[in-house]
Amino acid sequence: MRRALPPGTPRIAIVLAFLLLLVAPPFLSSFLLALVTQAVIYSILAMSLDIILGYIGLASLGHAAYLGVGAYSVGILATRHGAGFWATLAVGVLLATAVAAVFGLVALRATGVYFLMITLALGMVVWGLAHRWVSMTQGDNGISGVPRPDLGLPWSFAQGLPFYYLAFAAFLVAFGVLRVIVGSPFGKSLVGIRESESRMRTLGYHVWLHKYIGFMIAGGVGGFAGVLWAYYNGFVSPADLELATSVEILLMVALGGRGTLLGPALGAALIVFLKNLVSVYTQRWLLILGAVYIGTIVYAPEGIVGAVRQWTRPGEPPDVAALGARRPRRVAS
């Protein structure tokens, strides 16, 4: 029997982490701040994929497509048409949702490995478009010179710190929205589908429709992350949409703990830091990253959050918590 941590520990840790994200950045070096900003943006992306992987229970290898659609919306609209932040945000999110709506029609006919392969292929289609539709995307060279957004506020987002807070606010919005969704009756239905599709069907759920809606939400939020990503880098290229990116997002979700929203956010932060920080000190960072993945699979198949929950609630089987949402409260009646 492992010794349990005090019951409230994870919640306190989460609150502390959020506080730290709010208060600490002004004291960080600008390089670290840049990494935290990246981590926050990638967290949004990982949480969006978590809807598909963690809640619906399907592994997608095409999630970079939505990042790309959001990012290219900004790249094209901001550099060529001088569009402002809100316009690019709306277009980026809506377009990514629309792309997910089309992809969902194709991909959601399948499950398991077939779903994986179809989403992979669809992701490559978007990559190919970015690569080949040169008049629109400037192909392989990418679109550079995307200006930082101007929201008419007294501070400039060209500075690292204000932009970080913009990204952090976006993260809070995305987390809030996704949290409400996964806690809603609809969100619960996704978990039901993950656990037993056949039962959900005979209970009276139009299973495909639920998956489809979830898939579109994931795409839209992925596009949201893409919009921020483009503004952050000031640059968009097909490299953002590569299969490697999709794989990375998938690993972020798996590492953090699928079906927990904050787990994938944590996974995203860890991988961003590993990739960028460890490689400063050693060229063997790939080995370290590989070791982390293998360690996760062997010792924490439900990810970091899963492992922590096992410690804090040793009585329960490890993946009970994979549900993610709060236990229903007792309702006064």
């Binding site: 070096s29 600008s30 390089f31 670290l32 840049a34 990494l35 990246q38 990418g142 880098n233 000031g234 640059f235 290229s237 490299a239 953002d240 990739k275 960028n276 490689s279 400063v280 060229q283 960072w285």
Partner: peptide
């Protein structure tokens, strides 16, 4: 010397590191 991994995003991050840190 910083490793770009051949990726524009990583290169940008490392550029920041070199200039700012």
């Amino acid at each position: 010397v910083e490793d770009t991994q051949g990726q524009p995003n990583i290169a940008l991050t490392k550029l920041r590191k070199l200039v700012e840190s």
